[in-house]
Every structure is written in structure tokens, then in C-alpha cells.
Computed example of a mutant assay.
Amino acid sequence: MTDDMEIIRSSGNIFRDLGHPYADREQLRALLAAKIIGVLDDRKLTVRAAHEVTGVAAADFSRIRKANLGRFTIDRLMTILSSLGQEVDILVHVHPRVTAIRSDLDP
């Protein structure tokens, strides 16, 4: 059954693996949203309770829970984490992107 399957190692960024044009931005937004969801779950907060605690619209928390992140900037997600009492530290490494060339894909 596994004879016809090819295993490909992930880059660690699913958005990059799928060829998304803004993969790094989307990965960061997804990570921040996951942290927000984790805080809500740890505190057992509903979206309405989270609204009461933070002043952030309950609908925004619903969007985050559904991974509907199109309306959220990185800054907005960091602000929401801050309003939940979290300190956000982001470490940035800038380096040239390495493009993998696979000889088994060449014609």
C-alpha cells in the first residue's frame, strides 16, 4: 500500500510547502492565532467571556477559532494576545531563501 506513496519532508511552514505567495506572513498569523486559542482554552473562556475580559469583539474571537484570519494583521493578533495578558516576543532571522532543486523532478 505504501509502495506508490512518496514521502516529502516539510519545510516547517505549510504555507511555503503549498506555494503560498506570502507564506511567512501566513505562518506567523497562524502561530499567533494558535496562541490566542490556547489562552482561551486554558482559561476556559467562551468568545463572549473573552470579549468581556478584553473588549475585543466576540465575532473576532470566533473568526480566530475558525482560522478565518483574513481580517487580522500580525499587529492586531499581537494586540489581542496582549489584551489577554500575554507578552509577545518575536525573534526575526533574515537570510536568503534557499530554493531546493530536486533532480528527480527534472525532465
Score class of each variant (00 low, 15 high):
41 D>H: 07
69 L>M: 05
88 V>W: 05
30 A>Y: 14
49 A>H: 06
59 A>I: 10
44 K>D: 11
106 D>I: 10
76 R>Q: 13
72 F>E: 07
47 V>P: 09
102 R>P: 00
60 D>V: 00
99 T>C: 10
67 A>R: 12
104 D>S: 12
29 R>C: 08
40 L>A: 05
64 I>S: 10
85 G>T: 02
25 R>Y: 01
22 Y>R: 08
15 F>N: 01
38 G>H: 04
20 H>T: 01
1 M>T: 02
12 G>K: 03
107 P>V: 10
68 N>Y: 01
32 L>N: 03
17 D>A: 00
43 R>L: 10
79 T>C: 04
9 R>C: 12
25 R>T: 04
43 R>G: 02
30 A>W: 12
69 L>C: 07
69 L>Q: 08
1 M>D: 10
56 V>S: 05
107 P>W: 07
33 A>N: 06
69 L>V: 03
89 D>H: 13
12 G>H: 03
65 R>Y: 03
70 G>F: 06
62 S>W: 02
19 G>N: 08
30 A>H: 12
42 D>R: 10
95 H>A: 15
33 A>C: 08
76 R>W: 06
31 L>K: 14
16 R>V: 01
76 R>D: 07
105 L>H: 09
30 A>S: 12
67 A>D: 08
9 R>P: 05
3 D>P: 05
39 V>E: 10
105 L>G: 04
98 V>R: 14
7 I>F: 13
